[in-house]
Design a protein around this nucleic acid. Structure first.
Length: 221
DNA sequence: TAGGCCATCTGGTCCT
DNA sequence: AGGACCAGATGGCCTA
């Protein structure tokens, strides 16, 4: 997991593939179906599967129904008098109904959160095959963060490349370069007109390392 | 069996 | 007052 936290953009694809294909660190042998037997309601299971069976405590869901477990827990709290200050002012029946509605709301909220996480998983490039275990919540977030960083890095590199190409074609003037640069290139235009430094120097001037996207950077000296 | 991951319940806090 | 959000506690399921 630590590797996800410090992952650079460059390493993202390789790692995401690793997680997807091998399921490293997330339990390779765990199939998508096996992963969620656990009380995981609808969203707990894999995205396309039918809702997994629920445990008794979860069966009531938002219907406001009470399970036996929840009844017991409620009774225990009532006897202990740990219902909270607001509850203490209410009649038991009222307390209970309020508690149920709060629980249902919280359940809904968590389901919405899980929906959003599923949406995030859907757009993160990693293997979505049925044989691959679903990303955990934390892995989803970390992978998404690294994916964003990687995209930003690629975008930055593309900008530099476009700027370089424009200059090489004698289009160094910002006005002439504008049609080739979809973003506000003028503000970050890397080279002054007429500056004819060797390519690796130019690339290195902005990233500190030669660009992988620049053919000159990859040329043998 | 331990550890990871998860859903749910719960009380507290903040906001409208 | 009611709803949203949060974090801690608890218990279930699964894998190594």
């Amino acid at each position: 997991m630590a590797e996800l936290k410090s992952l650079s953009g460059d390493a993202y694809l390789a790692l995401s593939h690793r997680y997807a294909a091998a399921g490293l660190a997330f339990g390779a042998a765990r199939g998508p179906e096996a992963a969620r037997g656990c009380g995981a309601p609808d969203l707990g299971g894999d995205l396309s599967a039918a809702p997994a069976p629920r445990p008794p405590a979860a069966a009531a869901e938002s219907s406001g129904e009470q399970s036996g477990d929840e009844d017991d827990a409620f009774e225990q709290r009532r006897r202990r008098g740990t219902g909270g200050a607001a509850d203490a002012r209410r009649r038991p029946r009222e307390q209970r109904s309020l508690r149920l509605s709060i629980n249902a709301r919280e359940r809904r909220r968590m389901h919405d959160l899980n929906d959003a996480l599923d949406g995030l998983r859907a757009v993160i490039p990693y293997a979505h095959s049925p044989s691959v275990r679903k990303l955990s919540k934390i892995a989803t977030l970390l992978l998404a963060k690294n994916y964003i960083l990687m995209q930003a890095q690629a975008l930055d590199e593309m900008r530099r490349l476009v700027a370089y190409l424009n200059q090489g074609q004698g289009l160094a003037a910002p006005v002439a370069a504008a049609p080739l640069t979809p973003f506000s290139q003028a503000a970050v235009y890397p080279f002054s007109a007429g500056a004819a430094l060797p390519c690796p120097d130019k690339c290195a001037a902005f990233s500190g390392t030669p660009s992988a996207l620049c053919k000159h950077c990859n040329e043998k000296p």
